[in-house]
Design a protein around this nucleic acid. Structure first.
Lengths: 189, 189
DNA sequence: GTCTATAGATTGATAGAC
DNA sequence: GTCTATCAATCTATAGAC
């Protein structure tokens, strides 16, 4: 079936989340998906190509989740808060940021989906903060770009810190702290 | 010489920084240090034991750096700012946070040095923020613990985001943004 | 399009001479 | 305390039958 390709991509997405790129072998993908080696190398040139397809798919999925969540809020700062304060588990790691530190990710081809995702995410957050300032909901002590950078970093760093401390909840302490600090910059209407 | 052990630890520290734990093979340590396999397995039970020694050494080194820097500032918020805004390079990664996401770091023995370091760092930062609030230099909109969590996360997340974007400077955008936002919480004297 | 068998390199670790 | 030679396992990938 043509679905074998899709099955391999979905399995790779799961394994990239659980173990990252370097620690995920083609054998592991095949064992978990039930596919055979021949299928794998028929659909993909190798591990790298499959991983790129999986990361692109993951990036699209997370982007869509973000857009859906933002669409539910007319207040741009409420949208940011809703995004940041979703319940997460640092022991599992970020579905996409999890991979960033793998040595192989220095390869520009492998890194491209990550760069695209984080770039787009930064743009979307910048736009929300920009809108909040335009609507006089937010002080201009920081630029929209600075706030977007800090939002992304607080989230990604919360995952790192939480995993190091072996406490999955810590990632939400980090995001909650960011939102609390951000709320001190709200302007009265 | 007894210095071979020390040489292996230093080489491992460098490689853990450059490549993390899983991607660093004993062979690589030996090749770079010039030591032989016999020496390695004479001084250490294996890769894991060497890595723990290297991480403990790194944690002590970074802790000492932090203490030296803090000792130079009587204003606790100036100390935090000086620490956060040191020039860093995300492409190299954090000398210790770099390793957190490696799959093998789920092993509690391997993770212990990281947990110790980040725990201590959080304690020291909490104390600085606590002191700032006691001296009425800082608003109490956020607890000292929350601010410490956010400081650590902004730094670690800045490394992740910067590496994903392949722009080493981005880590300092993240830390600068945190300090700028923190400074809005300074109280007039 | 899928399978099994196998290749060649590298992994972490051990053996045994010196 | 240090060396070289070697091990079994695993890695990414290929070959070739069906």
């Amino acid at each position: 079936m043509a679905k074998t390709r899709e099955l391999l991509v979905e399995t790779m997405k799961q394994l990239l989340w659980e173990r990252g790129y370097d620690a995920t072998s083609p054998n592991l993908v095949l064992e978990r998906s039930g596919a055979g080696k021949g299928s794998f190398y028929h659909h993909f040139k190798g591990k790298k190509e499959l991983a790129i397809a999986a990361m692109d798919s993951r990036a699209d999925e997370l982007s869509e989740e973000f857009d859906c969540l933002v669409a539910k809020h007319s207040d741009p700062l409420a949208a940011v808060a809703a995004y940041m304060c979703q319940t997460r588990d640092a022991s599992k790691g970020c579905r996409i940021g999890r991979i960033v530190q793998d040595p192989s990710l220095e390869d520009p081809l492998l890194n491209a989906p990550l760069k695209r995702f984080f770039g787009e995410q930064h743009g979307k957050l910048t736009q929300l903060f920009q809108q909040a300032q335009t609507e006089s909901l937010l002080s201009d002590a920081l630029s929209p770009e600075q706030l977007a950078t800090l939002a992304i970093s607080a989230l990604q760093g919360g995952f790192v810190y939480g995993r190091a401390m072996q406490e999955g909840d810590v990632v939400n302490d980090a995001t909650d702290s960011f939102i609390t600090l951000l709320n001190t910059q709200r302007l009265a209407e």
